[in-house]
Design a protein around this nucleic acid. Structure first.
Lengths: 180, 180
DNA sequence: ACCTGAACACCGTTCAAGT
DNA sequence: ACCTGAACACCGTTCAAGT
């Protein structure tokens, strides 16, 4: 025992995410991930289809770890909960989060989140077309805010002001649903 | 004459932006920019403080080329014009645009755009604090939408649907000002 | 003053070789 | 089956040398 290091896809993503969280996206290199797993960079290629696939995997990790609001809650609380969970995820993984703005939401993890939003909007009384449009717009809005915060675009502003901004934004979103 | 290539900061940014527009951000390497100017990569360092400064310069380029709406227009048309100009810029420079979400708006170019938005909001009757908040939120929202589109997050959807999404978004923004 | 050559420490990725 | 060694074509960046 203890002769050769054993790795798998999950271990690679764990290592890459830890690296991204502590040292930023640029620190996620095949060599650094390998080193963290005590393996040569080339060993990763058996489990992961290259660097781009690794980044895709990281994004999916964020999505699949997304806490969904309790189903029994009223629609507006579910929407608010979803938005807050998104912001919390952005704060936990600021380096990876902006990549979400880059990829079509077609993966299983993205689909789950979208269905949750669509469900809340349907309960609010929006028809299918309006709900689909509102979902795109709301996701984009919340994603843009959270990604901005994660990337440090608001770093000149006190945290309290940004929290208040977000609260105002949530108010807008609610109005968007009821006022349309 | 014609003995040694002469370059300067503006020429470097021109070359880098052209490269980014046609081949993406990853194609913007010191070597590729140098080659386009028929100069070695090391020659760039005399005029530009490294790769990061080059990217910063590219972002500022986008901002400073931003067309501002005519000052005589009513506030809501100015706001709409600003948002549409932002989206047009994102379409012209899709590779560079997402970087805007990454940097605090403290450069001269960013300041000009922000003042234009604040001016329109002041004319709409918002006090200073409310205008500052609305500016942050609106810029973030429009930036998020335009960056998403530029990065290809909506590539599964027909262009007409996205245009309509944007029109709905502009309606929301207007409501945000009058309804608060 | 401003560009070049040589050099360094990294990158991602391949492929044959080892176990 | 799965990791390693060697190799390749790139990266960004420095510094002394050329003109």
């Amino acid at each position: 025992m203890g002769r050769r290091r054993q790795i798998d896809r999950a271990a690679i993503l764990d290592a890459a995410l830890a690296l991204a969280d502590t040292d930023g996206l640029d620190a996620v290199t095949m060599q650094a991930v390998g080193q963290r797993l005590q393996v040569t960079p080339m060993a990763l290629y058996r489990h992961m289809d290259g660097k781009q696939a690794l980044l895709d995997g990281l994004v999916e990790r964020l999505l699949s770890g997304f806490p969904l609001p309790a189903a029994g809650l009223p629609w507006d609380e579910r929407l608010t909960g979803l938005a807050e969970a998104m912001r919390a995820t952005a704060r936990q993984h600021p380096a990876v989060f902006p990549l979400l703005l880059t990829r079509p939401a077609v993966t299983p993890g993205a689909r789950v989140v979208r269905e949750a939003v669509l469900g809340a909007l349907a309960e609010a009384g929006l028809d299918e077309g309006a709900a689909a449009r509102a979902e795109r717009l709301m996701s984009t809005t919340v994603l843009g805010f959270a990604a901005s915060e994660a990337a440090g675009r608001f770093r000149r502003h006190p945290k309290a002001a940004i929290d208040e901004d977000f609260a105002v934004l949530l108010g807008w979103l609610r109005l968007m649903v009821t006022g349309a």
